[in-house]
Design a protein around this nucleic acid. Structure first.
Length: 481
RNA sequence: CGGGGUGUGGCUCAGUUUGGUAGAGCGCCACGUUCGGGACGUGGAGGUCGUGGGUUCAAAUCCCGUCACCCCGACCA
């Protein structure tokens, strides 16, 4: 039935007209955020925060499942501590915020507001790790961090953002590498299964890796407009941090050794990824697993005898079945409510009016395709659950198709330029020799930077797309958020 | 951080060129009629014109600073 994509919500700028404005409109109109008087610091409103809480709940469960414990580090880092690992401080110094006063007294040592907490974890590990028996430590924390960004955008790049940062420390390099890979997989599974966002797993190039890391892995997603978004990272540190911070333990062979570390993180940027992967011209489209409201009941002609009573019965039934359900019995017209909950991305809408009650049925409409189904009231719970799964699968497929359509395999620089011009922004797959000079040149000439070296390699050609020398790896390139 | 643009009731904007003391539509509140895709009528409330200085008898309007947002670059989860 009504499968047209007619725009029903004119409060939101059309995507094709102005993608950036469309994105901002959704953030505001779906009541995810509100700006504050500090640049880059936003209020995450209840509806937006509820999405984050669902993300947290699921991810946290996955971390616990893989043996991690939550801890909480302080938010301040003394300058001397930050300085200990050279690459790390060089990477982060340009964007840290400093506390220089305590009350009216100038601080002897100024304090950095954590941009990330490697240094704090390292200091802590140096105190508590003495023997191989103390290893591994598999820690995670849910906190906010501050990075003084120049250009800011809600969720995508704010100066303060919420995230989780996992920090683990291991007896052997092998174990730490396995941990790095394990968490990358956890992230990818989470994105695909729960957020319905297809991702590319890969390794960052040398120039793009985390400050202080030996290697950085990431999952990259492609947004509706063809730009890439890094959705999560997992780093292998080797023993570099341990050496810099003097973390040592006595091994099984009774030798003093340096342990190996990892860190991995995901942020509220995921909410931005959800918006830009699934959203449409009528607003947000939320993956059912993290939607604050999974199903909204809209009574039609609610003033008529019995309608609200019946609607409330549906509400009780769905709630008892563990579905996050809301009933909107406000005085707004049904049409207004349809538009409102579409804008807010509620996956499933249930309409119930006198006609339905008479025939013991109701109408279920799925958000992503506006498909209407008539369902017997007795079968409602299973029907809603089925529809929620359909929404998850439907939006995943749509996102995957968008990515496939916008992924171009290229063997020459000209092909890259041409593909971008003719088909629009997207992922470029092209071979690379491994030289940073070529990476820079590709960016300079075509405008796309390296996103990652995918774990799943293809041999598109034997030579580098840029210099023609023998190619080492196939790389995904793209314009990034 | 560089180049460009925009800030006027909650929202979208007019008014700024040529200074004279603030308007519209939507939203909000009340009542009534409505109700299967953003209903209608009547009445009402709501603005130190982003903000700080300056010029002037008088500033939304002119000048200087500053802040926020948007677009394009460079940096980044």
């Amino acid at each position: 039935m009504a499968k047209d994509n007619k725009k029903m919500v004119d409060a939101i700028t059309s995507m094709d007209e102005d993608f950036a404005q469309w994105y901002t409109d959704i953030c505001k109109k779906a009541e995810l955020i509100e700006y504050t008087s500090v640049k880059g610091c936003m209020v995450i409103r209840p509806y937006g925060y509820a999405i984050w809480e669902n993300i947290q709940r699921i991810l946290d469960g996955m971390f616990k499942e893989t043996g991690h414990e939550n801890v909480c580090m302080p938010m301040f880092i003394p300058e001397s501590l930050l300085q200990k690992e050279k690459d790390h401080v060089e990477g982060f110094a340009p964007e840290v915020a400093w506390v220089t006063m305590g009350g009216s007294e100038k601080l002897e040592d100024r304090l950095c507001v954590r941009p990330t907490s490697e240094t704090l974890f390292c200091e802590h590990y140096s105190n508590i790790v003495h023997s191989y028996r103390d290893l591994p430590k598999l820690y995670n924390q849910w906190v906010s961090v501050v990075r003084w960004e120049k250009t800011t955008r809600p969720f995508l790049r704010s100066r303060e953002f919420l995230w989780q940062e996992g920090h683990t420390i291991h007896e052997t390099a092998q174990e730490a590498i396995e941990e790095t890979e394990r968490m990358l997989n956890v992230y990818a599974d989470f994105c695909e299964k729960y957020l319905a966002i297809p991702v590319i797993k890969g390794q960052k190039t040398e120039s793009d890796k985390f400050a202080g890391a030996e290697s950085t892995y990431a999952i990259e997603a492609l947004m509706h407009d063809g730009k890439a978004l890094q959705a999560g990272t997992s780093h292998y540190f080797g023993d570099g941090f341990a050496r810099a911070f003097g973390i040592q333990f006595t091994s099984r062979e009774n030798k003093l050794e340096y342990p190996y570390q990892t860190s991995w993180g995901m942020t509220t940027r995921l909410i931005g990824a959800i918006i830009m992967t699934h959203g449409d011209n009528n607003g947000l489209v939320l993956p059912p697993a993290v939607a604050p409201i999974q199903a909204v009941i809209i009574p039609v002609q609610q003033h008529k005898e019995g309608v609200l009573d019946e609607a409330r019965k549906l509400y009780d039934t769905l709630k008892a079945a563990g579905i996050r359900v809301k009933i909107d019995d406000s005085e707004n017209s049904p049409g207004w409510k349809f538009a409102e909950y579409e804008m807010k991305g509620v996956p499933v809408r249930i309409e119930l009016g006198p006609k339905d009650i008479e025939s013991k049925q109701c109408v279920i409409v799925t958000r992503h395709n506006r498909e209407k189904t008539f369902v017997a009231i007795d079968d409602l719970v299973s029907a809603v659950n089925t529809k929620l799964e359909e929404v998850r699968d439907g939006i995943y497929q749509a996102a995957l198709e968008n990515r496939e359509r916008r992924t171009y395999a290229c063997t020459t620089m000209d092909e890259i330029t041409k593909a971008l011009e003719e088909k629009g922004d997207g992922f470029i797959k092209a071979m690379w020799c491994g030289e940073e000079a070529c990476e820079d040149k590709v960016k300079e000439v075509t405008g796309v930077g390296s996103r990652c070296i995918p774990l799943e390699q293809e041999q598109l050609s034997d030579v580098c797309v840029c210099c023609g020398k023998p190619a080492k790896k196939m790389v995904y390139w793209g314009k990034a958020y």
